[in-house]
Design a protein around this nucleic acid. Structure first.
Lengths: 199, 199, 199, 199
DNA sequence: GATGAATGAGATTTCATTCAT
DNA sequence: TATGAATGAAATCTCATTCAT
């Protein structure tokens, strides 16, 4: 009688989470049913419960994975660039999101506002992203690219929430051309961070 | 042979919408059931359907009312002030939101990303707020308080989404002191809008 | 304080029954709701209950009226004609029925099979029609147009059920041309009733 | 890793259809609720939906099964007999129907007049019965038992509707002795089909 | 006479979850 | 490990009927 193969086990879990992400992206947390996820993951309902104890656990794990990935992606763009470029690159990358991903993100925020567990997960990953940004900002300050009077911790938080907010732009204003506000955002960040034109 | 009393009718509708807002705030669009709303509004399920033909109609009307109120509130703060003050006042006012309201807002965004009707409602009210801001910005430009090279329409959209994003700040960062990022936001907006110092 | 005007009262009742007949014809006994009938009769739900104590009472009264009318119509065609012509005329008249009326008739039969009250109503009107036919058959027998060995009572019943059955013809066989089976029915009846070709 | 056992599956489906037939027979299509059927089939409501996607699907399948059985039964009596005997046997067999079955049949006709899907099902099975009868009639014509001038297709349709109509006989005339109209029906069919006596 | 507000039971359907195999 | 049969609660919505005005 063999024991569980932990590699296969984790693989399955990941497959389920990916299926869940697709379903939740299409229909939201409550619109997507366990059956949908099972169909998408090509497994039976009973079996799925060997890997996750409840639907909520799936949602949690998926959010966890999703936010982790987002942080990682941000970490990659952040390497060695200036803050401005890193942020703008990140914004532009997530801009052409088909709206599904954005909806899922908002589902997460809504849930986090009601569910302490989700709030903790969100907070954890936000902290990671924040740390990355703080690093970037500090380096910028050393290179005199970023205003030294700004508190890196606070600014990092504000910048992340700025990115969050940018996701409502097309939602609120479907007819606005993406490149126009892209430019405006770049200006905004640039002016915010630049050291005062000491002359 | 009394006809329907339209005043009472509208009153009831409003009472239902208020009950719905409370329930949706607590549990989200899908977590709040018709029965919950009925209990909260103290009426039978059957009767509620005399006022709204479906749950979706309730959600729509409630979003409509909510966004309208938000736009109105913003309109009030916007009167006669500078853009900067108006925005910061607005941000500060909505900051101590108990999280419930914010969750509802995110539910709306999530829903708008999937449901065209909601998208239309959101877009309609966003347009109103944008118009107010554009006005404010134009006046600011005339008074040389706002950089003339900025396109008011685009900037207005960006500022609104900035406000949206600010709602994730406490969610992502529960331990951050509100006043610190309040200040940072003020700096951000101020630097973004101010005309270049070069003379 | 005047008493009820019995004329107006009956008029209203009839109006309701007519509205009900239209609704039931469209949607069947259970598909048509009291609200539908009220809308069709242009009156409020509460008021309708001044004229009928329940939905079932409406159905009963309507079936009563419907069957009475059918019997009367048959009585008219039956005057002074031969049995054969009377029956065929009746069949042809009800042939181009748009199916709605036929459906209502089948609803009545189905209901009569389950509800003793309906069964009694059906039986009562059937008796009237049967009496008319018996009369016709007797006269036919006197004139040697109808086989004298046939029992008029039994034959009348059989002929009525033959007419009932004819209503399923187009339902079962949508592509059959009406005139072809019309002719066949005429032959059938004619051969059934004719006295044996005594030679 | 067992797959669905298709035998058990079909068995359950059949059990449900039988329970449904009993309920529908008692209360009609709309009077019988899913809960009633579940109780009768001794299963939970949720589980029933594993076998049928909707109430309508159950009705359809049940009608299908019912009509098929009717056609089969008719097919059995039809083997090797004369048309006359086959029909009369069939009539007599279905005569002592407890009224429940007849009601169900009328429900089906009523429904078919309003619901195209039901109309199609009815038409399909009618076609089968008609084909059987046409065969019988053709053989009868070859043996000179049936009038050669009659069109078998049309006559078959007329005879089937005659059988349909016979179901209203006891309903309309509860006090009529079955054997008397049985005899009359035999005479009717016999005279209708027989070749003209003229030699 | 006439209205429509109000009720509450009940209908169909979905869904997360458990369990025997 | 894996299946899918099975459950039962709950959700949305409809409808006949009553009642205050």
């Amino acid at each position: 009688m063999r024991k569980v193969d932990p590699v296969k086990y984790e693989e399955k879990r990941r497959a389920i989470l990916e299926a869940a992400a697709r379903c939740f992206g299409r229909n939201g947390f409550h619109g997507a049913s366990i059956s949908h996820i099972c169909a998408e993951a090509e497994m039976s309902a009973g079996h799925l419960y060997h890997y996750f104890p409840s639907k909520e656990a799936i949602i949690e794990a998926m959010i966890d994975a999703n936010l982790e990935r987002a942080a990682n992606r941000f970490g990659e763009t952040a390497k060695g660039e200036s803050v401005l470029d890193a942020l703008v690159t990140h914004l532009e990358r997530s801009a052409p999101d088909d709206g599904r991903r954005a909806s899922l993100l908002f589902d997460m925020f809504a849930e986090a506002g009601r569910n302490p567990t989700m709030a903790r997960i969100l907070s954890k990953h936000s902290h990671e992203m924040q740390a990355l940004l703080v690093d970037l900002l500090r380096r910028g300050q050393e290179r005199e690219e970023v205003d030294r009077s700004l508190d890196p911790e606070v600014v990092a938080s504000v910048l992340i929430s700025l990115v969050d907010g940018s996701k409502t732009l097309t939602l609120r204003n479907p007819h606005l051309a993406p490149h126009s506000y892209g430019e405006a955002l770049r200006t905004l960040i640039s002016r915010f961070l630049s050291p005062p034109a000491s002359k």
